[in-house]
Amino acid sequence: MLDTAPAVRKPPGRKAAGARIRRRPRLGPYLLIAPTVIVIALLMFWPMVQIGIMSFQKVGNRQLRGEPAEQVGTENFDKILSDPFFWQTFRNTVLFAVVAVTLTMLVGTLVGLLLNKLGKRMSAFVSGGVMIAWATPPVTAAIIFSWLFGTTGGLVNWCLDLLPDALIGGGWADHNWFATPLSTYTVLTVCVVWQSCPFVAVSVLAGLKSVPSELYEAARVDGSGPWRTFWSITYPLLKPIFMVLLVMSVIWDFKVFTQLFIMSGLANRDAFNLSLYAFSEAFGSLNPKLGMGSAIALVLTMILLVVTALYVRVMVRQGETK
């Protein structure tokens, strides 16, 4: 990214003007960032602190009516960590993230490589189409896939029913995809991967454009196949991009909420992930347990914080914060 902020080299004659401009605004930059800092402090940092505080409290209907919160020590954590249901949602979250991130990175990279190989017009056409998947609002995406995988009239069931029974078994015509957690997550994975691999594809494409074509020509002259070329040229050069994409995908897929909420809802507890579980504890019943919800949210945040630290490290190393 272009950044003219550091006053690198100045022709000698301009020194005076440069110094004047630099010295003038002592308070200037602080005034400029002040509104943002206040907004972020109030809307992000303070709530994060509150999650920390509330996860050691009991916050329910009484507190919503204005009574002071009850300190319960580590009770919330004792409860969730010894509850097999928590570990089930934890497993759902991690398994989904692993599968979805792997598929997103794999499919996204392949599509990015393909876009790079296509002619200019065809590449623009295909990436335009791929963008549409990315642009679709999560709520709409979840509803469209619920319809595609619908029990009555769903296109996927219709297609599967057409295939020979010997291949995939029969009885697909009225298969309910949202009956078990495993098949719910299958639909969720398809939906999320469909939406998130365009971002990977377009970023990989942008990266590939920056690789000097001489390198690929040299590799071809030396008789390197596509597999080898990818691992010895493309991957090492685009490693920073892959790192950023990987971290972002992990974070996005770890906390997926809207799509799962629409597809499976609060009634279907077996298919909960951590964000849905936290939400359901806090708001899902007439007896809200906001402290418990906070404790679960804190666990989720802590995991993501580790991933975020990795992300920040990569970005700082690349000089993004210069």
Partner: peptide, 30 residues
Amino acid sequence: VARFRFRFRTTFLVMLLVVQMVPLEALVIP
């Protein structure tokens, strides 16, 4: 950020990065 060098500039930029990664789903409760 783009025009001035000032103390806490890097801190501010890192903060922006961190904040983008905060799970908003967790902030609903507070």
